[in-house]
Amino acid sequence: MCTGLTEKQRLYRKWVKELRSSMATLLHKVDLEYHLVTSGWYTRNTKASSLNDVLRWKESFSHLLRSKEGRYAFHTFLQTEFSEENLEFWEACEDYKKTRWVKKLPSKAQGISQEFLQIGSPREVNIDHRTRELIYKKMAVPCRNCFDAAQEQIQILMEKDSYPRFLKSPVYNTLLKQSFPSTVTMSFT
């Protein structure tokens, strides 16, 4: 009896293990999205958006980002895709730009860097190496626009990748349905 596994058998076992892991992640994503939509969790935790607002989010990604409720809906969707750190980074950059006290910029910049930009950080965003190095250079003397290049990259990534899926998602479709007036009365007098 042969006690060792062949290389083919080891590769097959590894492949099966990865497949099981991928399936578990996919099932968790589907379950989370279903729970968020069917439980009413989203609608209980936000103020109702008007139909006009929800329809404007579909017009452009910038309309979605300008709306607090739109960002909240998008964040809920990103949680189902395990990529909410992208929007959180974008929002942290927006908050950073609005910092009134120049003396607070270095500590805020360091916090953003540690949370989102350092390689291996728990909520690391996907930016290229050149942009990361540029930010580190700008952080030597932090200014309000030191994260602009990374923020723009993440915004483009969300717009091209996650945003189209958001517009087709149960989260968006549920909001759209809930925004329609429940009753329409017509009078022909």
Rank of each mutant, 00 (worst) to 15 (best):
T99R: 00
L19Q: 14
V30E: 06
S49K: 02
G120A: 06
H129T: 15
N45H: 14
P122L: 12
S182E: 14
S162F: 01
H75M: 06
W90A: 01
Y163I: 07
F188V: 15
K104M: 03
R144T: 11
M158E: 00
Y72S: 04
E133D: 15
V37W: 02
S113Y: 09
Y136S: 04
N45T: 13
N52Q: 09
V184I: 15
G70I: 00
P170F: 03
T131A: 07
E81I: 06
T131G: 04
R44F: 06
Q151W: 00
N145M: 01
Q114R: 13
E81L: 01
Q151N: 09
S22R: 14
W90E: 07
E69Y: 02
I112A: 00
G40R: 05
E91R: 07
L5F: 15
I154C: 01
C2N: 13
A109G: 09
Y172N: 08
V37C: 13
R44M: 11
L78M: 15
K108V: 03
E159L: 02
H129R: 14
R130E: 09
H35V: 12
S62A: 12
L157R: 04
S162R: 03
M139R: 08
S67D: 09
A73S: 09
I156F: 01
G111R: 12
A24G: 08
L11H: 07
K138Y: 03
K177V: 07
Y136P: 06
V171F: 00
E33M: 05
V30S: 11
H35S: 15
I112S: 05
M139A: 13
C143V: 10
S107Q: 15
R20L: 08
Q79D: 02
S83V: 12
K177P: 00
H28W: 12
T3M: 14
R13M: 10
S113T: 07
R66H: 10
L11A: 15
Q153V: 07
